[in-house]
């Protein structure tokens, strides 16, 4: 969903020329209802007009005291009245006004897609392009731009509520704006935070042991144990035990069980890690080659 550029469904609460303002309580309630349903809302006052909105369908709500057809021609900056979807809410409750909006957006095929927007945001003032996040993430969230810069490429691949990659970043450059605590949530970075980051020698020491090799070992043991009588149910139980243990060991990292449960198989992990490392090494090598010679 978020990969392609897309404009949020937009509603204009028009209180400009040719309309009456809403009561404050009604305005607040209507705004809250629309926002909680995922709409973007612009409030237009008498000295304003409906601004350019990028060509997407737009719903304009107002208590119009002029015929809507005349309003469309005079008050909306010459924009096409058909695309504006004017709706008079003079006698509508906030819920009824929202229903009018939903009617338009449903008929135009625009449906909200629920996704908790959880993904890393890179603070490029701090990022040193070391590619540790790229090497660490097993879900292909990160990528490299054509000019060799680390970037967030697949936001929806990120595991909701998992901030693990921000913890491997040696520069505190990875944010999750919806995380509960600083500095991962974007709060100022303290001296203590920097001291902690300086202690991160490598990913495996951060994890108190290499998570990947731990999974590989467990997998090998399980293979040996169940080689003669292996079935899916027992394999699943073994995996759950393994993940539970990992989860206890990594309690301080705050990695949700769902993310652990979605870890790829040990073989896949090895493959993905090798691929990510190759990509990171290639980008780093290119950057070194492109860098101006030091004096």
């Amino acid at each position: 969903m978020p990969a392609a550029a897309k404009t949020a469904r937009r509603v204009v609460l028009y209180e400009g020329a040719g309309s009456q303002p809403l009561e404050a309580a009604q305005r607040r309630q209507l705004l809250a209802l629309l926002l909680d349903r995922g709409y973007t809302v612009s409030r237009v006052r008498p000295d304003g007009e409906v601004s350019e909105h990028g060509g997407d369908d737009l719903v304009v709500l107002g208590r119009f005291d002029t015929p809507v057809s005349e309003l469309a021609n005079s008050s909306f900056n010459g924009q096409d009245a058909g695309a504006l979807n004017l709706r008079d809410i003079s006698s509508a409750t906030p819920e009824e006004a929202v229903a009018m909006v939903e009617e338009v957006t449903q008929s135009s095929g625009e449906q909200p897609e629920y996704w908790k927007p959880w993904f890393p945001v890179i603070d490029y003032d701090r990022c040193t392009n070391c590619m540790q996040c790229l090497s660490f993430c097993l879900f292909d969230v990160y990528g490299v731009t054509q000019d060799g810069q680390i970037t967030v490429r697949n936001e929806t691949n990120c595991k909701t509520d998992c901030p693990a990659c921000s913890r491997v970043c040696p520069e505190v450059a990875i944010l999750f704006p919806k995380y509960k605590a600083g500095p991962i949530n974007g709060d100022e970075i303290s001296e203590d935070d920097l001291r902690r980051e300086a202690m991160k020698v490598d990913i495996s020491s951060l994890l108190g042991g290499d998570i990947y090799s731990m999974l590989r070992d467990r997998n090998a043991k399980a293979k040996s144990r169940f080689s003669k009588e292996r079935d899916d149910e027992r394999a699943l139980k073994e995996r759950q035990r393994c993940l539970k243990k990992l989860s206890q060991q990594m309690e301080g990292l705050d990695i949700p069980a769902e993310a652990l449960a979605n870890l790829p198989s040990a073989d896949e992990i090895q493959f993905k890690a090798a691929q990510a490392k190759k990509l990171a090494d290639s980008a780093l090598a290119k950057n070194r080659a492109d860098a101006p010679p030091s004096e």
Partner: peptide, 15 residues
Amino acid sequence: AVADLCQMSAAKDPA
């Protein structure tokens, strides 16, 4: 007013 800036950022919303 927007529902969620994070969501708009992920969607590269032109707005």
